[in-house]
Design a protein around this nucleic acid. Structure first.
Lengths: 241, 241
DNA sequence: AAGCCAGTTGCGAGTTCCCGCACATGGCAT
DNA sequence: ATGCCATGTGCGGGAACTCGCAACTGGCTT
């Protein structure tokens, strides 16, 4: 068995290496990559290797790397090892994991034992392991009237990218009015109205821009998510002509 | 001499501890804090301690912590040790450093030797040490017609927070029209126009929202900066009634 | 079949935003 | 003093945004 470690921080990388070797004595080789791009390359070369990787990396982040790795070989097992349980990450991961694939999500703050256990569960037992904290977040995010639906999340990204209502309508195949309805729902769920409620300052906030900030402050959106969305948008723009 | 280490990642913290002891044999005590809040407390207790800290922390980030530490004792020496050289960080730091205070900014990717040298330069020689990469960024950011002026940066934050032109005008003591002028300059410097230029898609972008995304993608803005700006805004709102 | 509900769409009004044009103000050099 | 340039301001119009009201769809129950 081979394991591919993807992590840009040298200290964390060597720690991971150590833990992998300790937890998986049956492992014959440990390969290391320092960013997502390198990871994609090495994953191609080591076709049967399992992967454990960080989400936040410079050159190509963990989600993008995982997407291409899974696209080429959907049964590969990947353990995500991240600092945070931001909704942006969790949504990002769960929207790319192939049907039936085994994967894991463990926080860096977890104890050594937890990491080792997760490594064995996923790579040996072929079982999903999601950190409690992450699962809790995921649960909350799908609660009706609180969490955003996938459709709403999509629109949220679009306004975060700075698209107009009209271009969003075009991109998502909706009427202008429907886009605006979705926006109002997003504003409601994000409590944008309430902020200007108590005061007499009905006019202090631009709802559209405020929604984006609110989403970022709540970690629904983050740099990586925007980066990905921007790439998708560019692709769509160019194929539209 | 005492040194206060502030760093939330355990691996990095112990590494820092090691490096400090090696670089500064004259150091009598090394104190450790795991977040900004704890740092402020410990800094008060150890009144003569120098500080070396990370910028990105959960409870209170490095910039906020540094701001209160310096407010209480402006001649304290602080070495910032960060993963990134984002413009948001650099601007954040340089706007809080007291006149004439000695400080440093070293990237985590720097070699051990560089870190040790910086520690000695700042804490012993009382000299500023700014990483080359950081200085380069700083240089670019003040170049006219490319970097944003402090005034423009301020307005950029305001629209990122979702304020309307009118409330910005009120907050910054400008006329509505002046705010809009500033916005146009910001759009220009951020190349917002050019994006929609080549295509016939004159109407695909909402300039205001687009400017925020562009700023985030360029790392002019990040989570920490928004968080701080949001706190400032709340303070302003409440004192306005 | 009748009724209900969520999601979609059109219309219209009031507001905000983007920005060209024109004018005032205030350093700063000639 | 004169001219220049950067910045602040007012006016006005076209576009975009927010959103109440109303009608229409398709899927669901009773």
């Amino acid at each position: 068995m081979e394991v591919l470690i993807v992590e840009d921080d040298p200290l964390h990388r060597s720690y991971l290496n150590e833990q992998v070797r300790a937890a998986l004595p049956e492992c014959t080789a440990v390969i290391e990559a320092t960013d997502g791009l390198e990871a994609e390359q090495l994953a191609r070369e080591h076709n049967s290797a399992h992967v454990v990787m960080d989400l936040q990396m410079s050159k190509r982040n963990g989600i993008e790397a995982a997407r291409t790795i899974w696209r080429e070989k959907p049964d590969r097992r990947i353990l995500f090892w991240s600092n945070y349980s931001d909704e942006a990450y969790v949504r990002g991961v769960s929207r790319i994991v192939p049907n039936g694939a085994a994967y894991g999500y463990v926080l860096k703050s977890a104890a050594d034992e937890r990491l080792k256990l997760a490594l064995r569960s996923i790579f040996i037992e072929n079982q999903c392991v999601i950190d409690n904290e992450v699962r809790g977040m995921q649960q909350r995010s799908v609660t009706p009237n609180i969490g955003l639906t996938e459709a709403e999340y999509e629109i949220l990204m679009d306004i975060a990218l700075g698209m107009t209502d009209r271009s969003i309508a075009q991109r998502r195949h909706l009427s202008l009015r429907s886009v605006q309805n979705r926006l109002m729902q997003i504003y409601g769920k994000l409590d944008i109205y309430q902020v200007s409620g108590p005061q007499r300052d009905e006019g202090t906030f631009n709802l559209r821009a405020r929604a984006v900030t609110e989403a970022i402050l709540r970690k629904l959106l983050n740099y990586g998510a925007l980066e990905r969305a921007e790439a998708d948008l560019k692709a769509w723009l160019s194929e539209k002509g």
